[in-house]
Design a protein around this nucleic acid. Structure first.
Lengths: 336, 336
DNA sequence: CTGAAAGCGCTTACAG
DNA sequence: CTGAAAGCGCTTACAG
């Protein structure tokens, strides 16, 4: 069912039919009604590719994350989807499964799709080669009128950014835990090449240092950025002998794994050891004990990154929207 | 950067350049290399819309669910995405936020996108008007060579189906709980118009009846299909006076809310009351107590629904892939 | 307000 | 093996 058939059926030219259906120009009422009736009767649906090709723009917004089933990304994606829906845009969501090269491949595909905007909602990689390759994809896209916005700090990408204040959040959490009386800490981190990891860890460590508290290198354990990564990292820590009274997992997802590991080793939280995370994904309220964490407005961040990408007129210089994290003390932490 | 430019740069016709880039026909090595070099040098990316328009097929698979941030859908979507990636397809994920009319609107948009396949992974609605409207969208799409597959029972959609055995799973769970010694049950359900709800509830109730155990109507409470829906439904039950020794929440997500409600009312699980869910989403292992549930292989189901939609030759008659649920007894249930 | 025509960037019979 | 040409289904100046 094409426009031409509809037009013929209504006894007008394709041009007129197109104008009626898009509401771009005034069309005599009689013709307009004939076209509308024909389109309705024939169940006409315009071919989006033909529209995109002819008008050089599409209704698709591409969103790239590490893993759709990670609640952190799901929450942000939810916000993006809400903002996109309001604007009549479709969202195309891709999971890289944490493969940096796949992330670049997806950007390329989204360019091919003439996506209206490309949103990177995963943490940045601090890796020269990757940064270069990503810029090589993004720059021509931007020059061609494409819109790009990201969540998290990306060192070299000069694009609109939604920036969770990871460093400040890490520091605030450290101070809150110090206030509770803790002096011995352990940290479960993800890959250091992720800006999110290094920022949170840096803020946390600096705040401790400022209070004269040292974070021993052997009390920092790196794991995968997942629930199981948290479990494994925490298990490693326990095997080596836990000296800390408080464990900070760099994300809530890792903290969930850590909680399981602690429990499996017969340790009670918070009686034997306190545990804190970061992000405040919805589920952590329902853990027992509920998790102390740094709350980020994830859905709002998703709406913001969409809004940033679409703002008019397009940015001359990139803009940064900061979102502060708020320490939420729950039952997983207690005085040592 | 278009094909024509690449072709000119390589000194060949657009046709030849196209053939080189798509590997469809043999091209003399010398020309092939010139084209490849030119494409590489110029950073050529084919316009996916033009390709789709010219070849009448796209690389996009559309997936429609109720809510991306629901772990049940996230897990299935993860499986779909894995299967799609293996085939070099892109996945477009849409959330309807549980609005049936939006579900139909998305199908329409995906048709316009000439999506290679459309996957409905939300539960079916038992609603005549909705079923009719959905069929009206799907039928022409199928006739035009589109592929459709769904997860869950849809009464009137004659398409390939991944069918979790909700009824059998509900029954098996009931028997397991009876074996534990329970005789007084309460159920937290979602909207009855969802086939998933009515199947699970039906299976559960039938198995009880077969054992001579009655499920009092006032012990069945309906809530939204969310964590908060579970919380509210369970609170309502508690206000009316809980007579059951065991509560069955129709999904794990609702069970998470129920667990919180029970805790907030000062009830211990399972000492004061047992609690069971359905689905085995990853997080329920990490609750305390971990949740008794009916385990469904969600990621596998996602891979299966993708495979079903894409199988060759296309179905003459629709096929059904059944996935059994396995009762997993965990610490949230105990003898009364 | 309306139509004929060109053009968007590809692919693919059809000749050669 | 290679190229000229038609065509995919729209939109949009350009005339009228």
């Amino acid at each position: 069912m094409t426009l031409e058939v509809v037009a013929r059926y209504a006894g007008v030219s394709p041009a007129t039919a197109s104008r009626v259906l898009n509401g771009t120009t005034r069309v005599r009422d009689e013709l307009r009604e004939r076209v509308l009736a024909a389109a309705d009767l024939l169940g006409y649906i315009p071919n989006a590719h033909a529209q995109a090709l002819a008008s050089a723009s599409s209704q698709v917004v591409g969103v790239i994350c590490h893993d759709v089933s990670d609640p952190y990304f799901a929450a942000i994606a939810s916000g993006v989807m809400r903002a996109a829906s309001e604007r009549g845009l479709l969202m195309m969501l891709a999971s890289t499964f944490r493969d940096p090269s796949r992330e670049i491949a997806y950007v390329s595909t989204l360019r091919a799709q003439q996506a209206r905007a490309i949103l990177l909602i995963s943490s940045g990689f601090q890796d020269r080669a990757w940064e270069r390759a990503m810029s090589a994809e993004l720059d021509p896209y931007l020059r061609g009128g494409g819109r790009v916005a990201v969540v998290s700090r990306h060192r070299t990408l000069r694009v609109d950014t939604v920036l969770p204040e990871n460093r400040a959040g890490g520091a605030a959490l450290a101070r809150a835990l110090l206030d509770l009386g803790h002096r011995d800490f352990a940290v479960l981190t993800g890959p250091r090449a992720l800006t999110t990891v290094s920022d949170r860890l840096g803020g946390f460590r600096d705040a401790l240092a400022r209070a004269g508290v040292d974070l021993a290198p052997d009390q920092i354990v790196e794991g995968a950025f997942t629930r199981d990564g948290g479990y494994d990292a925490c298990s490693g820590l326990l095997q080596r002998g836990l000296r800390a009274t408080c464990v900070f997992a760099i994300t809530d997802v890792m903290a969930i794994g850590a909680l399981a590991a602690l429990r499996d080793h017969g340790l009670r939280v918070p009686e034997d050891v306190s545990l804190a995370g970061f992000d405040d994904i919805p589920i952590v309220r329902d853990l027992s004990p509920p998790l102390t964490t740094v709350a980020l407005p994830l859905a709002e961040m998703g709406e913001a990154v969409m809004a940033l990408a679409l703002r008019e007129p397009p940015h001359r210089r990139s803009r940064v929207a900061r979102f502060g994290g708020e320490v939420v003390l729950r039952a997983s932490t207690a005085p040592p």
